[in-house]
């Protein structure tokens, strides 16, 4: 079971390697990746450095080019695939059908992974990408329960990667336009949900207010924890009731399901968080390395250690973890 770790910078990549990553995924610093934030990600110089460090440790490098290419700048997305191929990355993580087709034709030896942004949730959907393009692995959407993951794994002819830990999208990835509805920029086309330029944090007499392009999305009292300023985690009014109508700020944590995921033949566990610091990467990767090693240890019964639980809870958005959609009751 491969541990696939996030890196938004070289120090984060080193932290991932130091603490037990089997593979690290990165993006280029533009709209071709789904964490398109200022100051984050890799230019060509740093991508090359990343590759050298990965190779020196004998690990794998994946490049996420997982947004949908815009019609008037398709060449930018093609260029990103070419750059990843020139780096001899171990795989590219793609979502756009036009781009996957390009990668297959132009770089027949480049391994293709299907991004979670492609939202493939059924056997035939996975089969589409395998038959058409020879996609080797697919990252499963976080909307599926464990039983559904097991059903898919039984039928799938591609490797499957599931999310282990990180901030939670409750909407099916790649099929959410909430951000662009309010800000004009979306994960699909701009690689960003709630772009920072549209976010405003304001201290008022009654607490902390968050606005997104002027729209009030939450209001926190003095000691309430805050979350990312995304629409799905705001507090709104329905039927006169003020509440987290869609979701509370929450992180996904599927560690307790590791034995089942292993038994079902899941090939890789992905950690979310290219936007987080090297300190997060170090703590979370170390914790998951220990857990995966423990679950792979033959003849022992796996249980989530208190220490692991604490470290993950501390790094969680909204300071709480749930089993997310992998656990049916959550739905």
């Amino acid at each position: 079971m491969e541990l696939v770790c996030p890196a938004g910078s070289l120090p984060a990549l080193e932290a991932a390697l130091d603490h037990g990553a089997d593979a690290v995924y990165i993006g280029f610093s533009d709209a071709t990746n789904a964490r398109n934030f200022g100051g984050l990600n890799f230019n060509d110089k740093n991508a090359l450095r990343a590759l050298e460090r990965i190779r020196a440790r004998g690990k794998k490098l994946f490049v996420a080019i997982n947004t949908y290419a815009k019609p008037d700048s398709f060449t930018r997305w093609q260029g990103a695939v070419d750059r990843a191929a020139a780096l001899s990355a171990d795989a590219v993580i793609l979502a756009d059908i036009g781009l996957i087709s390009y990668a297959r034709e132009k770089h027949p030896n480049l391994a293709l992974h299907l991004s979670v942004q492609a939202s493939a949730t059924s056997g035939p959907a996975l089969e589409f990408y395998r038959q058409q393009f020879g996609v080797r692995r697919a990252v499963l959407p976080r909307v599926l329960s464990l039983r559904q993951v097991q059903q898919l794994a039984a039928a799938s002819r591609v490797e499957l990667e599931v999310f282990g830990f990180g901030s939670l999208c409750i909407m099916a990835e790649g099929r959410c336009h909430l951000s662009s509805y309010v800000t004009g920029e979306s994960p699909n086309q701009n690689g960003v949900c709630s772009p920072a330029r549209a976010v405003e944090w304001r201290n008022t007499a009654s607490g902390l207010e968050t606005r997104l392009n002027g729209v009030l999305i939450d209001h926190f009292a003095e000691h309430e924890n805050a979350g990312y300023p995304t629409l799905c985690k705001g507090r709104f009014i329905v039927d006169g009731k003020r509440q987290h109508v869609l979701e509370e700020p929450t992180s996904l944590n599927s560690m307790a399901l590791l034995p089942e995921l292993k038994a079902t033949g899941i090939q890789a566990i992905k950690l979310e968080g290219r936007q987080r610091s090297p300190a997060y990467v170090a703590q979370v990767v170390r914790t998951w390395r220990e857990a995966i090693d423990a679950v792979l240890e033959p003849g022992t019964e796996f249980s989530v250690k208190d220490r692991w639980r604490k470290t993950l809870a501390k790094n969680s958005e909204g300071k709480q973890t749930t089993l997310g959609a992998y656990d049916r009751p959550w739905q």
């Binding site: 949908y68 398709f74 756009d96 059908i97 036009g98 781009l99 087709s101 492609a118 086309q189």
Partner: peptide, 25 residues
């Protein structure tokens, strides 16, 4: 269905797509 550019459109047409409803955004 995420069809955001001419390349994706052409690919799906080659598989039999005859009508395309444009994504909301």
């Amino acid at each position: 269905v995420n069809i955001y550019n001419q390349h994706t459109l052409a690919y799906l047409m080659s598989l039999g797509m005859v009508r395309w409803t444009v994504p909301a955004e």
